[in-house]
Amino acid sequence: MPELDPVIHQPVRLQIMAALTNLGPREQVDFNFLKSRLALTDGNLGAHLLTLEEAGYIAVAKTFVARKPRTYVAATPAGRRAFDGHVAALTAILKPRGHA
């Protein structure tokens, strides 16, 4: 029986993980691009990314493009597994109602 993940369950982190797990396993998304897609502020996104990074669910890479600092974010394999488990747990909660 899959279990809900309290780190992922927070609404903003849920959005972030849903977006990141939609990318390919070798792809990273730009911080600002992710921020605009999810309609979040710098501080809000940054804080939640830190929590996810500490849980080992995402990897953050800082680099320079044309001398400007850029931050790229990607879901780790552990993060993908945790997210899949969380979605399975959510789906399992709804199942009894579907069979009723």
């Binding site: 849903a18 977006a19 990141l20 897609r37 959510l90 789906t91």
Partner: peptide
């Protein structure tokens, strides 16, 4: 159900 809907919306955006 609300969480799954939020996941769908976020996935659609990405």
């Amino acid at each position: 159900a609300r969480s799954l809907a939020a996941i769908d919306a976020s996935r659609a955006a990405m």
